[in-house]
Computed example of a mutant assay.
Amino acid sequence: MSISLNGVGYSHPNGMLALRDINLRIEANEQVAIIGSSGAGKTTLLKLLATSLMPSSGKLELLQQHPARLRAGALRQLRSRIGLIHQSPPLPPRQRVVTAVLAGRLGQWSLARACLSLCYPCDIDGARDELNRLDLADKLFDRCDQLSGGQQQRVGIARVLYQQPQLMLADEPVSAMDPVLAEHTLSTLGNIARERQIPLVASLHAVELALRHFPRVIGLRAGEVLFDKAAKAVSQQDLDDLYVNTGLNQPTRQTASALTQPLRNPCL
C-alpha cells in the first residue's frame, strides 16, 4: 500500500476546518481523480499527501512512512520521493527550461552537483527526453517567462517526471491547456504512471477529464468524501449531489460520456 488516511482532518491556523474524517486507501499503481467544487478541500488533501501540511487529526501513511513522526532529515528524504505538479508551477522567470526541468532532482543530488547544474545543465539529454513526452522539446533552451501558461504547466510536469518520484500528485495540472492538449497530457501522465508502476492522484475541476482518464474517482464536498467509486459507476445523481448549491451549471454524465469517444489527432 502506498497511501493510507485514517480519520484524517485538517484545520487552518484560523480555525477553519478544511477536511474532516477522511478515510482512504490508495494502492500502488492506482490512478485516482479527486473532483468537487472550489473550496471542497481538494488542494488541501493534496498538500497533506505531499507532506507540505500535516494532519490536525488522524493518521497519514505514505510510502510506508508516517510523516508526522519523522525528523527533519527523514522528512526531506520522503519529500524527495513525492512529486507534486502545481497548477501554477513555481518557475523562475529568467531560468531556462532545461534548468527548470533538471531542478526536479535537486533534492536527490549533492550540493556540489546541484550548484553545478544551475550554472551548466548536467543532463541536457534527460531534460529533453521528458520534455519530448509532452511535445515541448523545442523549448529546451527558452526562458520560462517566454512560455504560455499551458507551456509552463508542461514544464512543471516534465520537472516532476524527471524527478522520478514514487508517488505522483497533480493539482489541476491542465487548467491552462486547450482541450486537445489537456487530453494528450493526462493520457501521457497516466501512461507514465503505469510504466513506472507508481500511484497518480490528481485534483481536477473538469469532471469529463476525470471520468475519461482515471479508473477511480473521489468526490469531495465541504471537506468530506461524498463518494469513492470506479469512474464508470459515477452516476448523474452522484454529480448532482456533489455540486448542488454551487450556483453553477452542474456537469452531466451524458457530457462526460460523449467525451469518451476517440479524438482526432490527439497529439496535436
Score class of each variant (00 low, 15 high):
L204H: 00
R212V: 11
A40L: 07
A182V: 07
I35C: 10
L91W: 12
A230F: 09
R196L: 00
C144W: 03
L5K: 02
G190N: 06
L181V: 11
A74G: 05
R25D: 12
D228W: 06
S257Q: 04
R79I: 07
Q95I: 03
D178C: 05
L53N: 12
N191R: 14
Q31D: 03
C122Q: 15
P251Q: 04
K232W: 12
R159Y: 05
A222T: 02
S37H: 15
L248P: 00
Q64C: 08
G15I: 01
V244R: 02
L60Y: 08
P92M: 14
R71M: 05
N265T: 05
L45C: 13
I3W: 11
Q151D: 04
L84H: 04
R221W: 10
G83M: 04
E27H: 14
N14G: 12
T44N: 08
R253W: 10
D178V: 00
G41H: 06
Q152L: 01
S88V: 04
L84W: 13
V8S: 03
L140E: 07
K232E: 15
P199C: 10
C115E: 12
E224Y: 04
G223V: 12
G104R: 03
R133N: 12
L70T: 01
N14R: 10
P173C: 09
S187H: 07
C144G: 01
D135I: 02
E61Y: 14
V201E: 09
R133V: 13
A233V: 03
L49R: 04
S80W: 04
Q108G: 04
L116M: 08
N29V: 14
V98N: 01
L46Y: 12
H184M: 14
V225Y: 10
A233M: 08
K229C: 09
A40Q: 09
A103K: 11
A114N: 02
L78P: 08
Y120E: 10
R71W: 00
H184K: 10
S52R: 05
Q153I: 07
V98P: 13
A210C: 08
R20T: 14
A230V: 10
R154Q: 06
M1T: 11
P67T: 03
L140R: 10
Q197I: 08
G107C: 09
A193W: 01
S203I: 02
Q153E: 00
L220Y: 13
N29D: 15
L45R: 09
S203D: 09
D125Q: 15
L5Q: 02
R69H: 14
D142F: 12
Q261H: 09
T44V: 10
A68T: 15
E27R: 15
A176V: 03
N23V: 00
P199D: 01
R105M: 09
V234G: 12
W109G: 02
A230Q: 15
G7L: 01
L131T: 09
L204R: 08
E208A: 13
P179V: 10
R216M: 11
A112E: 12
A112T: 14
A33H: 02
D125V: 02
A103P: 06
